[in-house]
């Protein structure tokens, strides 16, 4: 039924995938492209678990109709670092105890990365604002905030 071809750049690689007009980006990533790092906690834009970066902005991929990603540049948790070459946020989240169940982690890291990409030296207030749409029920946010602030220090030296 009216299936369309979606072309976009995913983690720096060109992708073509057949989607139906009612598909949301989160489902295309998870179900069609098997990138399950992006989580789905509500499907309604209320938890931030599905956060990806699209054209430089953190977005809830459960609210993005897949076709809206046409020609866009999309980054997911799988694309920002590898075990050999971790993103500074991945390192500080691991080192400072910012990960418990880990279900919010990819979304948290993507929201934080979008912030640091634009503002490599944010204050506590900016960090809180950037992750205010990401719910974490495990950590109480304390160590997540610390990890983002710590990564911002690393950001400067690493880039």
């Amino acid at each position: 039924m009216d299936n369309k071809i979606l072309k976009f750049s995913l983690n720096g690689e060109l992708k073509e995938v057949i989607v139906s007009p009612s598909d949301m980006l989160v489902d295309v990533l998870r179900d069609k492209l098997n990138l399950t790092g992006t989580k789905k906690g509500c499907g309604k834009g209320e938890c931030g678990a599905c956060t990806v970066i699209m054209n430089g902005e953190a977005v809830n991929s459960c609210l993005v109709p897949a076709m809206k990603a046409m020609d866009a540049e999309v980054e997911t948790i799988e694309g920002i670092g590898s075990p050999e070459r971790l993103h500074p946020l991945q390192e500080t989240f691991m080192d400072l105890g910012a990960i418990q169940c880990g279900f919010c982690t990819p979304g948290m890291i993507m929201s934080s990365k979008a912030l640091l990409d634009k503002n490599p030296n944010p204050g506590k207030k900016e960090v809180r604002e950037a992750i205010s749409g990401n719910i974490c029920r495990c950590t109480g946010y304390v160590k997540i905030e610390e990890a983002v602030l710590a990564a911002s220090g690393k950001y400067k030296t690493k880039r």
Binding site: T36, G37, F93, M94, G102, T105
Partner: peptide
């Protein structure tokens, strides 16, 4: 406070859950 053994998989998006 050793680093959690599950941290790497969870931080890189490869850790899997039932819903995955």
């Amino acid at each position: 406070s050793v680093r959690r053994l599950d941290a790497l998989e969870k931080a890189t998006g490869t850790g899997t859950f039932a819903s995955d």
